[in-house]
Write a protein that binds this DNA or RNA. Structure first.
Ligand SMILES: NC(=O)c1ccc[n+]([C@@H]2O[C@H](COP(=O)([O-])OP(=O)(O)OC[C@H]3O[C@@H](n4cnc5c(N)ncnc54)[C@H](O)[C@@H]3O)[C@@H](O)[C@H]2O)c1
Ligand SMILES: NC(=O)c1ccc[n+]([C@@H]2O[C@H](COP(=O)([O-])OP(=O)(O)OC[C@H]3O[C@@H](n4cnc5c(N)ncnc54)[C@H](O)[C@@H]3O)[C@@H](O)[C@H]2O)c1
Lengths: 221, 221
DNA sequence: ATTGAATTGATAATAATATATCGAATAATG
DNA sequence: CATTATTCGATATATTATTATCAATTCAAT
């Protein structure tokens, strides 16, 4: 029992917002300035009513017969997500996945600016990846507080995940984007978003096996 | 209107299964052989009843007072996901993200074996990454049919995503694990699983901003 | 101006997912 | 062997998410 936390997250909606944003920016770059929920729905592979509900959450309203003004829509979504202004972040673990993320351009357009990276491996130290300098983890506490960084991306090996997390928490981190498969222990007030790539593979796996089954059924009938 | 597709996917459950699997394997490697839904729930940060429902879907049943036999559980989940036997896959686009995935060990334990990779960049060709050889995309059609590969991982630049997809579909691909932000057009029968890393960032962003707000409220009251 | 076609958005209905309750089953204990 | 504490799992409920319906609005064309 206990806490009874009200969840007014609208999580599925929030998850779709970046995809809308990307489409809108494509339209915008093509000089188009309005779009209907039906058009967005088609491109997203969902129902138009769902698009309207989603957009409603960001506080925008469209005009009948026309649709939505793209520039307003972009502003509205970005503002809702807090992506209008850029947030500084540190990345921990400059390995395979870490370097990929350091080179991921679209993060910059999603309000995230990785301003430094940290590792323990001497091969990685003092190098720069895509303009981001790599420091030893020991430097993190000082830099975290000096630069007042509130967000960290965690791409260290699983066995070091909690230890690095503790260090981050101790130095006032507010949010952790966790790519390790570890369920991190953090005090209340610190937000952790865990990404599990394997969950997508799981969905793909069951859908593919189901597709085979239904194909066989059709053949059979 | 139209199709009225019933969704008996239990998608949220399927998404959680890999995380259970990982925990179970840790337990197993520690010589533990039973676990209760409560223990798993605690580690996952969810309710125990939800764990039981999830596990039920894979067709297992536990014993009161004891819990679940871990070896059975692993077998049951792996079999449900189709991860008991390994599936061959090709990877397209040996760039930043592509090489990270080529080096991602845990894929091998999730029933996925990347047996070849493809690129167009001459710098990448004929090299091997983590034991996986890189071929020119032009070789893909022949190898796809010769090796009867049904699953592809797509990590090419967005502007080439559809074109590579068309090539894959033409050569009988059944499933695509799509890391590009493009909503791919595929014929019925081909399964696409799109991964959007930014959707996780979106969730983190709104949660962090909300955390700040609720903190302020508490201070105020 | 009037009509017609297209689209939004309020309301309602349905579906999917998560949580609660509690009897039944089971192994450990005395 | 009876008792007790614990955990499962069937059933019921609550919450959240999606889809449907349709009147109201707006622009464009006549
Ligand atoms: N490779 C992938 O495609 C992939 C995909 C999904 C999740 N992950 C997860 O991401 C994490 C990293 O995976 P990877 O493949 O990049 O591994 P990796 O070994 O290539 O990279 C890990 C890096 O972290 C550094 N490191 C180790 N201890 C550290 C510490 N205490 N502080 C800072 N840095 C430290 C290492 O020196 C290394 O550079 C793992 O938890 C993995 O499960 C990886
Ligand atoms: N870098 C990341 O962390 C990250 C994260 C999420 C999503 N993505 C997405 O993954 C994709 C790849 O990103 P990246 O950062 O690795 O880019 P990248 O440019 O480093 O890699 C792309 C690779 O694809 C190859 N390529 C180009 N055309 C090809 C073709 N027709 N057939 C086969 N290979 C081809 C290129 O030569 C290059 O090696 C992009 O769509 C990006 O949006 C990247």
């Amino acid at each position: 029992m206990g806490d009874k936390i009200l969840k007014i997250d609208k999580l599925p909606t929030v998850r779709r917002l970046p995809a809308y944003l990307r489409l809108l920016k494509v339209f915008s770059s093509q000089g188009i300035d309005t779009v209907s929920s039906g058009q967005l729905a088609e491109l997203m592979g969902i129902e138009s009513i769902l698009v309207r509900k989603d957009l409603e959450l960001t506080g925008i309203s469209g005009t009948p017969r026309i649709g939505f003004r793209i520039s307003d829509l972009i502003r509205s979504i970005e503002s809702f997500l807090g992506w209008a202004t850029s947030t500084d972040a540190f990345l921990f673990g400059v390995g395979q996945l870490g370097t990929a993320l350091l080179g991921y351009r679209e993060l910059g357009q999603s309000g995230l600016k990785i301003i430094a990276a940290f590792d323990t491996d001497s091969d990685k130290l003092n190098r720069t990846f895509n303009g981001v300098r790599v420091f030893h983890v020991d430097k993190a506490p000082e830099l975290l507080s000096r630069l007042n960084v509130q967000l960290a991306i965690l791409t260290v090996p699983p066995e070091h995940a909690q230890q690095v997390t503790d260090l981050l928490v101790m130095n006032g981190i507010q949010g952790i984007w966790n790519y390790t498969p570890v369920s991190l222990e953090v005090p209340e007030g610190v937000t952790v978003q865990k990404e599990d790539l394997l969950s997508g593979l799981a969905v793909l796996s069951v859908r593919m096996s189901r597709a085979v089954v239904s194909q066989r059924c059709e053949e059979g009938s």
